[in-house]
């Protein structure tokens, strides 16, 4: 593996007032690769993503190490974090309807992001925004630039978000369920665009999802989380050979096209899954 972009060791996150930590003892490294984090709702996968961006004002974040390039994310000041966010690390959220400003034109929002990160003229920012819209395969960038968010479809909105997030050339992109609000037919398109850009620019990608198919197809490695712990880490291609009963249970519970109609295997949860696993790769 190339030099890691991100190293996390023994990450524990506890929301203020919560009896149990939301995430406990999570460790992973990320190179110039695509890492998937999967788990059910409440398993702590989004919390990990937000902790990396330090977007959890009401939580206590503790870790043995949380290093992003040369920055120590544990001790960085808010000022340092502001210089990082959107610039060297950015985040794509689930639903473009809620992440774009509804009363400003799409293109202006991208251009604003340019101006926030670099000193440049408005004209240059507009050109950058148009070029970025083209990079996410929008056929008529000028037309989309002048549209308001409610005038574009979900797939288009998510491409605009991707354009905005990749604009500053980040080293790390965290995508939190980037396509779950989209139709199946658009989902693949959007994922392919994201995938193409991430590969081309050598960005490290963390894809947070509950969808095993998506992670299998678009990631190199997968972390599986259960009740705030990482229960298993494995190569996406090896997902079918998962050893942990939780991962196997999740895979089996998924109905498949052309699959059998026998009752689907139901996950039997075991209390020992919440304890740290010893000696699994």
């Amino acid at each position: 593996m190339t030099t890691p972009i991100l190293e996390v060791e023994d990450l524990t996150i506890r929301y203020r007032g919560a009896p149990q930590p939301a995430v406990q003892g999570a460790s992973f490294t990320l190179g110039r690769e695509r890492l998937g984090i999967v788990g059910e709702s409440g398993s702590g996968k989004s919390t990990v993503g937000r902790a990396l961006m330090r977007l959890l004002p009401t939580a206590e974040i503790g870790a043995a190490r949380m290093q992003f390039g040369r920055t120590d994310l544990l001790t960085a000041s808010e000022r340092q974090m502001r210089a990082l966010r959107g610039n060297r690390m950015s985040m794509i959220l689930q639903d473009p309807k809620f992440s774009l400003n509804p009363i400003r034109r799409c293109g202006e929002q991208i251009a604003e992001a340019c101006l926030a990160h670099e000193r440049m003229s408005k004209r240059a920012a507009k050109d950058r925004a148009l070029a970025m819209l083209e990079a996410v395969q929008i056929r008529d960038p000028q037309l989309v630039y002048d549209r308001y968010p409610h005038q574009v479809s979900g797939g288009m909105g998510q491409r605009i978000m991707i354009a905005m997030m990749l604009l500053a050339g980040p080293e790390l992109v965290i995508a939190d369920e980037p396509t779950s609000a989209l139709d199946v037919t658009v989902r693949l398109e959007v994922l392919k665009i994201l995938d193409g850009l991430v590969r081309e620019k050598g960005i490290g990608l963390i894809m947070i999802s509950h969808d095993l198919n998506l992670v299998r197809n678009f990631c190199d490695r997968v972390l599986i989380m259960y009740a705030g712990r990482v229960v298993e880490t494995l190569d996406a291609a090896e997902l079918d050979n998962a050893r942990h009963p939780y991962t196997r249970g999740l895979l089996a519970a998924q109905p498949r096209i052309g699959g059998s109609r026998d009752p689907l295997p139901v996950l039997e949860r075991r209390p020992e899954w919440t304890r740290p696993m010893e000696g699994t790769a």
Binding site: P255, R261, P263, L264, P265, L267
Partner: peptide
């Protein structure tokens, strides 16, 4: 719902 819970509900509806 999550896949694991979806499986339970689909089984229930079929039964």
């Amino acid at each position: 719902l999550d896949v694991s819970v979806q499986a339970e509900i689909l089984n229930l509806l079929q039964r």
